[in-house]
């Protein structure tokens, strides 16, 4: 089953900004999927639409086969969201934020308290449970949002820039944590600017590189040099497969270079699952 299916998703904001010009995306159940892209690529817009915070202009979205327009409540109950910006009440105590969030998913208070304790301990926030949210440090706030997103035990966890403002130590344990819940069956989608993050999770660097025009069945071209040629074309898909027959490829520079080459970059998607990592560049 697909955890997420997006068909031809378009978003034009009221001020005329064309944030999404027809995104197609599929994420398998159990995947650890990274959406990569420069600032303004449309990552947060996509996530906002999936989770019901942004109205789409057109397109179709399904979460575990539930259409978000036909059965929004069921679709929403599958998703846990960690947004890019802090969005909790700064004047509420940490524990209450979690218990309330559970309540919004229909969970009774006793169960909610138990789960709040579990996740606060796992994310090393238990000592801060009575503290007002605004008194937490930036990294703690981020972890609070992760705990909050997990409180109803979603099948799909979406994290928008989860490691922003988190120190290296915690970042590492956060990746371990995400990897663990992924292994326990939660599908994960995250966005990031840095390759370092999915890479840390992806165990090894991606190895096989393919390029093809977008919307065509994945590529036939297996040479790393082929990546550069299609950059001038309208859109390309780059699929990077694990394990790599090209250990020499400097993946990081590959990722950053084309963004500098063209300002028309729209969305870059990286997908990591057990066997492969897919990157989609759009131009």
């Amino acid at each position: 089953m697909k955890a997420l299916k997006i068909n031809n998703l378009k978003k034009c904001y009221k001020n005329g900004t064309d944030a999404l010009k027809g995104v197609d995306l599929e994420v398998d159940e159990g995947d650890f999927f990274a959406l990569l892209g420069p600032n303004g690529a449309g990552k947060s817009t996509t996530i906002g639409i999936i989770s019901g915070l942004v109205n789409k202009t057109s397109g179709k979205i399904q979460i575990f086969d539930q259409d978000i327009d036909l059965d929004p409540a069921t679709a929403k109950s599958y998703i846990g969201l960690v947004p890019q910006e802090f969005n909790f009440n700064q004047f509420e105590p940490v524990q209450e934020i979690l218990i309330n969030q559970a309540g919004y998913y229909g969970i009774d208070r006793a169960t909610a308290s138990q789960r709040a304790e579990t996740y606060l301990r796992q994310l090393e926030l238990w000592d801060k449970r009575h503290v007002m949210a605004r008194q937490l440090s930036g990294g703690m706030k981020r972890r609070l949002m992760i705990a909050r997103a997990l409180i109803h035990q979603p099948r799909l966890l979406i994290l928008d820039e989860p490691t922003a403002g988190v120190d290296i130590e915690i970042r590492r344990s956060m990746w371990d944590f995400l990897r663990t819940i992924n292994q326990q069956g939660t599908t994960i989608i995250l966005t990031t600017h840095y390759l370092e993050k999915p890479r840390a999770c992806a165990r090894t660097l991606p190895l096989l590189i393919t390029a093809s025009p977008l919307n065509t069945p994945a590529c036939a071209n297996y040479s790393p040099s082929s990546i550069w040629k299609p950059l001038c074309s309208i859109s390309i898909t780059i699929i990077i497969t694990y394990p790599s027959p090209f250990p020499a490829v400097n993946y990081a520079s590959l990722m950053t270079r084309p963004w500098k080459l063209t300002s028309k970059t729209q969305t870059v998607l990286i997908r990591y699952s057990k066997h492969y990592l897919i990157t989609i560049f759009r131009f």
Binding site: K76, N87, F88, N100, Y104, G106
Partner: peptide, 16 residues
């Protein structure tokens, strides 16, 4: 203030 602090999103993402 829920709008201002964006905490209204806690409700908007939920099935409530």
């Amino acid at each position: 203030s829920a709008k201002f602090q964006k905490s209204i999103e806690e409700l908007l993402v939920s099935p409530t």
